[in-house]
Design a protein around this nucleic acid. Sequence first.
DNA 1: CCGTGGCTTTCACTTATTGAAACGTCCTTT
DNA 2: AAAGGACGTTTCAATAAGTGAAAGCCACGG
Lengths: 226, 226
Amino acid sequence: MAESSTRTVERALVLLGAVCDAGSLSLADAAREAELSASTALRLLRTLEGTGFVRRDPVGAYRPGLRVVQLGAQALGHESLVSLAEPALERLVRQTGESAYLSVPSHDGEGVYLAMREGTHSVRHASWVGRSIPLEGTAVGAVLTGSPPAGGFVVVRDGIEADVTAIAAPVSPGGRPAAALSVVVPSYRITDAGARRIGALVAQEAAALLTRAGDPAVHTTRGERA
Amino acid sequence: MAESSTRTVERALVLLGAVCDAGSLSLADAAREAELSASTALRLLRTLEGTGFVRRDPVGAYRPGLRVVQLGAQALGHESLVSLAEPALERLVRQTGESAYLSVPSHDGEGVYLAMREGTHSVRHASWVGRSIPLEGTAVGAVLTGSPPAGGFVVVRDGIEADVTAIAAPVSPGGRPAAALSVVVPSYRITDAGARRIGALVAQEAAALLTRAGDPAVHTTRGERA
DNA sequence: CCGTGGCTTTCACTTATTGAAACGTCCTTT
DNA sequence: AAAGGACGTTTCAATAAGTGAAAGCCACGG
């Protein structure tokens, strides 16, 4: 019974996702991407357009709309984890000079970068908030899916991305991993000892995140409207 | 015939918007907000949940999901205007010490803050990216909807928000305003002369945005996938 | 000049959405 | 303690609503 869903809505959301992933998509491409007939895709995209979730650029191609930006930004703001993690990311960057990320498991078996702080080295790992990352074969994935790693952190050298080493630690309120803190380093720059040192830092920050956190269920909830 | 739309999808999107606006909503509240029967709302929310657009917190309430954050962040990243405006906002803050915003008209007759830079004064205007602002009675609204203001900028003292003065200038590629740059100052701190000074800065930055911009239609478009 | 591919509209089919109603549960009220 | 109310959930028959094939248009390229 978990399988209740509205086909129309699902299709529209797939379409929306496709447009956002691509950044810009023609009707025909969008239809192909979502495996829909052109007429259906057109109708759904029009609906999305009417509500501001997509817009058409001068050329007629579909682009993510402002509503997406708006809701996304709002949601990010409400994400207590993000604000909670910011200082930790900041500290990790200061202590290591490398880029640091906060990521959480997504609904589809991947992970998403929720927040990041760029490293200070001129050669640094660069990604972006909102980026999807696979869970298989990544340090982040290992700590998000697996049991608490020995030592508190996981190091993956040249996993999905070549030439980079990722060091991740789980944020596990109540034992189950809910998020991951990670530092990503160009592989050439790091030794085993260095990885252990950073790992310790990451693990420590990940653990500390929880103690500072209040109940995750405290949010500003608007209860107006009759 | 602009009125083609799919009711189901529209409803789902309204629901999604309601959840995101509120940050957290019970099923009953969401249903009321969207004017839907509980059963319909439940079904649609389940669909949104299945696709990651909303999630349920431990209490069972609906929250914006990761997909929203992800797509929003992606969309923000693709927004060339934002990256284009960042340096301008930065400069405005440095020159004035006040918070500076980039906003664009939304689809529903309001405006949205697309980017912002917080001022350096300890008492400063604080808002957030994604925030909706009315166009009526605001400086931003004036420059977004009206014709090019004399002097290049508009000052609104104690408009929608009490005790703050907003100074906005239009970014008008090809004559029609597409976005607004604005600086918002606590009213007590500013004189008419000061407003004019800031106005000149804002207007100048707004104008300069365009010259630096290439064709707004240049984006990184991924064209893979058969 | 004709063919190809994309965008759009139309329309008959029927599938998929809908909302009232009923149920169980958990609080609050009396 | 019992009654009342609100909420989340499920069921089900009516039908409103979404679907996709087909055809028309337009623009482009050979």
